[in-house]
Amino acid sequence: MDLSGNLTDETYRHPLPVRLWHWLTAATVLGLLFTGICILNVHPRLYWGEVGNEGTAAVVGLDPAGPAVAGHAAPAVLNIGHAKFDVTGITGVPFDYGNDGTYFMIFNAPESWHFGGLRAWHFALAWVLVTAAAAYAVYLLLSRRLGRMWLPTSAQLAPAAIRRDFWQHLTLRRADDRQYNLLQKLAYLAVLGLLLPLMVLTGLTMSNAVTLRFPELFTLFGGRESARTLHALFAALMILFILVHVFQSFVAGIVNQLGAMLTGYYRLHKETP
């Protein structure tokens, strides 16, 4: 089945807690991204600073550009800073909320899904994400997996090794897979140690109750609307990570990679001389 090279020894790489966490988090993050995009679409304008609404300038925004003509896509313009792009018919169709105005939806969630319900799901999934990530962080520390598998070794940090690692990635060549490679380790550390906490914190900065107790969050992210904009930016980085992560699994041999994350057993590749 494996098309990607010569396989030799099998190693038990991913114990059950790792596998459970991986798939639970994968499902949760996909759910959060999906509901998050639905929420963003209801007001697809991002602002910098404390305040942002239909009357203030957006950093990035999808706006109507004139009245809709029956039978045609309503004119829409994408503003990025001062630049304007005509995106009529590209970014989706307008959705009339009646009293609440018309918005351009990249993806029109059917009304029966309920905007309020999507938000409720977003926060429920956030609880799952945070609880699982906290439990996993404890597991990484207690099992010493963090030191054994996630932290770069001194050999990996040698300048020649760093250059080789970059070169292998650029040329899409499989790295020595007896351990996670340097860029892989750094990516995992950055996502779990930095991106995830930042996503949670920017999300919490949009909570009235949380910021009542911790108004410092506004200072940290430069205001409520800045936090919302950063939340969207970090979500985009998360999507980028997922795309690269899946792509790399294909480069490294998807059957072996997927099998290892399901069964725990990973088949090592013969070292190429």
């Binding site: 305040v51 609404n53 239909e54 009357g55 109750a209 910021t211 911790f214 506004f218």
Partner: peptide, 25 residues
């Protein structure tokens, strides 16, 4: 976390939004 009943931020007169959207009804 709200057990001590902290207050929400209050702003200065200068920070009042020139445009306050009317939403809902």
């Amino acid at each position: 976390i709200l057990a001590k009943r902290p207050l929400a931020r209050e702003f200065s007169q200068a920070e009042v939004s020139a445009h306050f959207p009317v939403n809902g009804s």
